[in-house]
C-alpha cells in the first residue's frame, strides 16, 4: 500500500517534508516512526488524515500521516 508521509518542525532536519511511502499491509504508525530513526518519546502529535492518531493506529492505502514533535504556540 501507499501512504503520504509528512514531517514537520525538527523532524524535517536531514529527512524530508513530504514523501510517498510504499508500506506492507498492516504497518502501524510506530513502525513508520522507528523506520525514520525517531523514538516514540520524540513524537508530540500524530495526525492521520487530519485527525489525531496513535502510535498503534494501523495505516491503510491512501492515508496521509503527519508527524510533529511536541511543539506549541499561541
Amino acid at each position: 500500500m501507499k501512504i503520504t508521509l509528512k514531517l514537520f518542525a525538527t523532524f524535517r532536519n536531514g529527512r524530508f517534508k513530504v514523501a510517498e511511502q510504499e508500506l506492507a499491509e498492516g504497518t502501524d504508525v510506530r513502525q513508520v516512526v522507528l523506520s525514520l530513526g525517531l523514538t516514540e518519546e520524540e513524537i508530540g502529535i500524530v495526525m492521520l488524515n487530519g485527525r489525531h492518531g496513535e502510535l498503534d493506529s494501523k495505516l491503510s492505502h491512501g492515508d496521509t500521516l503527519s508527524l510533529f514533535p511536541l511543539v506549541g504556540g499561541g
Binding site: 525538527t10 485527525r51 506549541g72
Partner: peptide, 18 residues
C-alpha cells in the same frame, strides 16, 4: 525547545493539518 526555535508560528502547519 519548540517556542524558541519556531516561535508561535509553528502552529500554521499544525492547524492546517488538523
Amino acid at each position: 525547545e519548540g517556542l524558541p526555535t519556531y516561535g508561535t508560528n509553528v502552529l500554521v502547519n499544525i492547524l492546517n493539518e488538523a
